[in-house]
Computed example of a mutant assay.
Amino acid sequence: MNSPAVDIEVKRLPHGEGLPLPAYATSGAAGMDVVSAEDIILPSMGRHAVATGLALAIPEGYEVQVRPRSGLALKHGISLPNTPGTIDSDYRGELKIILINLGTDAFEIKRGDRVAQLVVAPVQIGRMVEVAELDETARGAGGFGSTGVRTG
């Protein structure tokens, strides 16, 4: 069963003219592909905020998560250093995709290339409540790696 679609208003900026709006590549896709509005060469270990030529008005109560594309990550080492990135509902500036090249070779991005995917997600507001003590759990205060690597 599909959830009802959430309308997200999109303003096309001048350098985004002629580019497709973010869209789902298949009927089962969770993320919409978003494309670059610029040509760049991303050097090995380099980072760049890639322009999309779009600004969004995300409804209150939602966020848009920016996630890497698996093919770019596997084949070229292209990822997002803050994945998933969050676009808040009150942000109205240009959507830019922060990419990092973890590969050994420079990577060319051309205008119109798919660079990331966007996932629309509801936001649950939390409230911090200060207490003197926390309840006990089986894990307790065990930190990074405390549950081990292997099962069984």
Rank of each mutant, 00 (worst) to 15 (best):
N2S: 15
K11L: 14
K11I: 12
R12F: 02
L13F: 07
P14W: 11
H15E: 13
P22W: 06
P22F: 09
T26N: 09
A29T: 12
A29E: 11
A29K: 07
G31I: 03
M32G: 00
V34K: 05
A37F: 10
I41E: 15
L42S: 04
L42P: 09
S44Q: 10
S44K: 13
M45R: 14
A49V: 10
V50L: 09
A51F: 08
T52L: 03
T52Q: 07
A57M: 11
I58C: 08
P59L: 06
E60M: 02
G61E: 14
G61D: 14
E63D: 15
E63K: 04
Q65G: 02
V66H: 06
R67W: 01
S70N: 11
L74R: 09
K75R: 15
H76C: 00
H76E: 13
S79E: 12
P84V: 00
I87D: 01
Y91W: 14
Y91E: 05
Y91H: 14
L95K: 11
K96S: 07
I98Q: 12
N101M: 09
G103L: 05
D105G: 01
E108R: 08
D113W: 02
A116N: 08
L118I: 07
L118G: 06
V119T: 10
V120P: 11
A121S: 15
G126Q: 11
M128I: 15
M128P: 09
V129M: 10
E130S: 13
V131D: 04
E133W: 02
L134C: 03
D135A: 11
T137G: 01
R139H: 03
R139G: 01
A141R: 05
G142P: 00
G143T: 11
